[in-house]
Every structure is written in C-alpha cells, then in structure tokens.
C-alpha cells in the first residue's frame, strides 16, 4: 500500500514536471512582460515538430534533438516578437487574447497542411525506456529523466534571472521601462530575448512532452487550459510559483485518477479552484 502511494507520488511529480516545463515559458512572458500570450502552445508545437523532423528525416538522436527544439521555437519567437508581438505591448489584454488566438488558429491550419492531422511518432532511445528498480519500486526511466530536466531548468533559470546581468536587466525593464532605458538598457532587446527564452522553453517542453502528451496539430488548443492553470495557480512572473503549482496539480491529478478513477477528471479542477480561492494571487504571487 505504501509502495503504491510512493509510486503514485513519483508519477505525480513526473507529470507535474512536464506541466512545469511546458508552462514556465508562459509564466515568463505573462509575468515579466505582461503579455497574455495564448499562442504559447504554438511555440511548444514548433519545438515538438522540430524534434520529430530532425529525428525521422535526419536521423538525429533524441537527446540531440531537444536543443534543436529549443532553438527552433526561440527563433520563431524572436521573428514573431520583432514583427508582430512588439506592436501589441501596450494593447489591452483583450486585444492580446484575440491576436494570440488568431495565431493559434493559423498555426493549427499550417501544421495540418504540412504534416497532416495525425499523431506524430517519436522513438525514445532504449536507455530512456522501460523501468528501473529502486528500493523495490518500479520507476519509469523516462519519468526520472523528466524530473532531472526540471531540476536543471529550475536551477539554470533562477541563476539566470537572479544572478546574471541579463536577469537584472529583465527585472529592471519590467519594473520601469523608462527608467531602465534612461540607464542605458536596451529595453527592446531585453524584451526580444526574454520572449525568445519563453518560447524556447515552450519548444523544449513540446519536444519532451511528445512521448506522454502526443503531438498533433491541435496541440496548442488542447493543452492551453493546462498552461494557464499552472501559471494562474502558481502566480505569473515567478519560477517557484509555477513549479509548486505544477507539482501539486500533477500529484493531485495522478492520485485522483489512481485512487478514484470514477471521478478522476474532477480532481484537478477542484484542486485548482480551491487553490485559487485560497490564494487569489497565486501561490507565489505578489499581493497588491
């Protein structure tokens, strides 16, 4: 019984890790740049398809395809930021919603055109498949891998934003654009890079997620709710908030489905509503 429980906990943490990787980019754009980017999933999809294409057509191994996914999505992010998103920083949130939904529709149709509507295959390398035995427990290898990736990303991001010059520039630009520009910070460049970072993380998540979530053209719409969920519960603009939120929601979801499969789908929504009512500004949100 206890073994089951630890197994469930492990799966929940792994599932939460995946939610975190995919959503953290949105927390960056929404919290730091105050842009409601519902097209976040489209960048994840770009990463996912980049993975599949280099793996199936060029024979690149899975692990090597992940950085490519990051770069592809980040590049798409920079291009769109420079050409379109930049014009809308001062628009209302509602206009931003309409704009980014428009992008989602376009990305879905374009992906269907180029790749067809079916699920895309991904072949994990042998050493990431199956299970490993640890202290009498069967743990999924790929899930362990996901958790490891999350730990690396969290540490790297925290270091980037809190310890580097670039991070300081981001924080300054967010707090006061005019003053930052006056201090010689190129605010536009900082925002471009931040946006690229957010998109790149989404792309990485898209690539990592194929094996669990699947990949087809409706991806950006299908999982939009999950991205928003993690960011809203965690509080936009932080790293810790979405991390805790993703883990809690992942554990609740897996535990709900395991112990009470009859009402499994309820659990995650109930958890979300309760968390939001108790913490209206998110777990790590700044109170105003």
């Amino acid at each position: 019984m206890l073994g089951n429980f630890i197994g469930v906990l492990f799966d929940g943490v792994a599932y939460g890790s995946l939610l975190f990787i995919i959503s953290i980019g949105l927390s960056v754009t929404m919290g730091l740049m105050n842009f409601v980017n519902l097209a976040h999933g489209a960048f994840a999809m770009v990463g996912g398809y980049a993975c599949v294409v280099v793996m199936t057509r060029l024979g690149v191994p899975f692990l090597a395809s992940l950085p490519i996914a990051f770069v592809a999505a980040a590049a798409a992010g920079i291009v769109l930021e420079r050409s379109l998103y930049r014009r809308l920083y001062r628009a209302t949130h509602l206009d931003q919603v309409l704009f980014s939904i428009g992008l989602v529709f376009m990305s879905i149709a374009a992906t269907t055109y180029f790749f067809g509507p079916q699920q895309q295959p991904v072949q994990l390398p042998e050493f990431l498949r199956g299970q490993v035995h640890v202290l009498g427990l069967d743990l999924g290898t790929y899930r362990l891998f996901l958790i490891a990736v999350v730990i690396i990303i969290t540490v790297a991001l925290t270091w980037l934003i809190e310890r580097t010059r670039f991070g300081a520039e981001i924080r300054a630009s967010v707090d006061n654009q005019q003053a930052s520009a006056g201090l010689g910070i190129n605010v536009y460049r900082v925002f471009s890079l931040t946006f690229a970072l957010g998109s790149g993380l989404a792309g990485l998540g898209g690539g990592l997620g194929i094996d669990v979530l699947g990949l087809d053209p409706t991806f950006p719409l299908k999982y939009m709710v999950y991205f928003l969920l993690v960011v809203a519960v965690g509080g936009a603009g932080t790293i810790k908030g979405p991390l805790f939120a993703a883990l809690i929601l992942g554990i609740f979801d897996v535990a709900g489905k395991y112990y009470v499969p009859q009402v499994g789908a309820f659990v995650i929504y109930v958890a979300m509503v309760v968390l939001l009512i108790v913490f209206p500004h998110g777990l790590a949100g700044r109170r105003t």
Partner: peptide, 10 residues
C-alpha cells in the same frame, strides 16, 4: 474574488 487571471481560471 481575485483579479483578472484568477477570475479567468476560476
């Protein structure tokens, strides 16, 4: 209760 994003999600 709450602000935009919270209401949206609730």
């Amino acid at each position: 209760r709450g602000q935009d994003l919270t209401r949206l999600m609730v």
